[in-house]
Write a protein that binds this DNA or RNA. Structure first.
Length: 426
RNA sequence: GUGGCUAUGGUGUAAUGGUUAGCACUAGAGCUUGUGGAGCUUUCAGUCAGGGUUCGAAUCCCUGUAGCCACC
């Protein structure tokens, strides 16, 4: 089980600093949790992940269930022992994969909305979730069929058919054995209509009750903490209703899931956190970029996970401190016309300008990569498609985010939140 | 030296005498949010040189140049 204590709060906002005590150690919050989907943070050893400052990692139920399977995880003594990570662990429930590897697969659909809001009558071109997807030839790659009882999907590894229900997800997560596990939810595209978002919220709520029930049945002395998930897309009434409903259930903490307006992540998170009980930790699922972390913390989020730092690292991009923005209106920072801000807090190491740039990614950065390697070397490694490129850049990007959130925590504890924001994003 | 063959972006190639000279890789730029070591968008870039035939030439002819092959 876990214990959550709040140390300090930000004056005039919902943000707070605290500690989550788990059977495998403490997580000082707010915290950024690196993602290790298949029981590995891609390209990094657990020692590297720990030494860059991470307190915990988050793995994925869907992927581990398919490979290597729960029997192996059980025999290994659980996720942490299996991967030689002796610190706290999370597992995601697999609900999101029903979306990202199902109806959204190969469609360039993300969970972050960047277009105008759909009208309420909009019937998008997406297959609906009642079975039509099977008849749509576009969806043969990795279709998922969602009904009120659960999700039937095909393995992305070998095409075999599998079924997750809320109960099954909890059972699998118990076998994997993370300290913090998540309820099985339904996530849908931000382009979906209000009606469909509402239906997904209601289904997620029913599934939440079933997850809690199964979790209690499986309870043993060292059982995992279960977090319930809030849905509701970009709609305030749905988000608040979802937070009230899930918040009233007997979860150990909460996950904020689903789709957002890029411009409005902080606002949507704020709605949710206003409704949630204050004494339990809140995790923002799959977010995010540096700006999103700051907005999330300010609006009451305690922990984050996101694939972005390691994914963009593998593709040649590195986070750098923002320069040139004088706007303190963070919600509008660089977001009105992203195309006019190509740097946007990151650099692309594959750009020609770095071929002979013998300075670190960021001068003054204390990470292992910046202490020892130049952009010219990294540019070479990426062009040569050498594996070390991913490793070194992942170290920098994870350090950057983990450290950004650590500094945010420090600022909260010291009562210097506004100064921190100004200094970080000036 | 003689004869033959070949010559299209940086590389490899495609194009009945009529296409806006196509494709792939490379190169330049952008995208990536509960993982996708992937992918997508986009840009730059070419008919060896000089003549000729033709309404029209990458394509046919001549000369030159270069490379490859064969022969003394």
């Amino acid at each position: 089980m876990i214990r959550f204590t709040i140390e300090t709060s930000i004056k005039g906002s919902k943000g707070r600093a605290g500690t989550i005590d788990t059977p495998h150690g403490k997580i000082q919050t707010p915290a950024f949790i690196p993602v290790g989907t298949k029981a590995t943070v891609k390209s990094l050893t657990p020692e590297q992940v720990k030494s860059l400052g991470a307190d915990a990692i988050l793995a994925n139920t869907y992927h581990l269930y398919l490979q290597p399977g729960t029997e192996v995880l059980k025999k290994a003594g659980g996720l942490g022992k299996f991967m030689n990570w002796s610190h706290p662990t999370f597992t995601d429930s697999g609900g999101f994969q029903a979306f990202s590897l199902g109806p959204a697969f190969g469609r360039r659909l993300g969970k972050i909305g960047k277009e105008e809001k759909p009208s309420f009558s909009d019937t998008s071109s997406l297959p609906n979730n009642d079975g039509d997807a099977q008849e749509n030839e576009e969806s043969i790659m990795a279709p998922a069929k969602i009904d009120d009882d659960g999700v039937t999907f095909k393995s992305v590894i070998d095409g075999s058919t599998h079924r997750f229900t809320p109960e099954r997800s909890i059972e699998i997560q118990h076998d994997i054995g993370a300290d913090i596990i998540f309820a099985f939810d339904e996530c849908i595209s931000p382009q979906e209509s209000y009606t469909r978002q509402k239906a997904a919220v209601e289904r997620t709520h029913k599934w939440a009750e079933r997850c809690l029930e199964r979790h209690k049945e499986l309870k043993h002395p060292k059982y995992s903490a279960l977090f319930g998930i809030i849905q509701g897309g970009r709609y305030e009434d749905l988000r608040r209703e979802s937070a009230r409903t899930i918040g009233a259930m007997n979860f150990d903490g909460f996950g904020i899931g689903g789709s957002f307006d890029k411009e409005d992540i902080g606002t949507a998170v704020g709605w949710v956190c206003e409704e949630l009980p204050e004494n339990k930790p809140r995790h923002l699922l799959g977010i995010g970029e540096p700006i999103d972390l700051i907005l999330g913390i300010e609006n009451g989020v305690d922990t984050f996970d996101c694939v972005a730092p390691t994914r963009i690292a593998r593709n040649g991009a590195a986070y750098v401190s923002q320069r040139g923005s004088t706007s303190l209106d963070l919600a509008r920072w660089n977001l009105a016309e992203p195309a006019k801000h190509p740097a946007n807090g990151r650099i692309n190491l594959l750009n020609a300008q770095f071929i002979s740039d013998f300075t670190p990614i960021e001068s003054g950065c204390a990470c292992y990569t910046c202490q020892n390697y130049t952009k010219a070397y990294l540019a070479h490694l990426f062009r040569a498609k050498e594996m070390l490129a991913a490793t070194l850049t992942s170290i920098h990007n994870l350090y950057y985010l983990v450290n950004l959130v650590k500094n945010a925590r420090k600022a909260i504890v010291e009562g210097k939140w506004n100064e921190f924001k100004e200094k970080t994003f000036k």
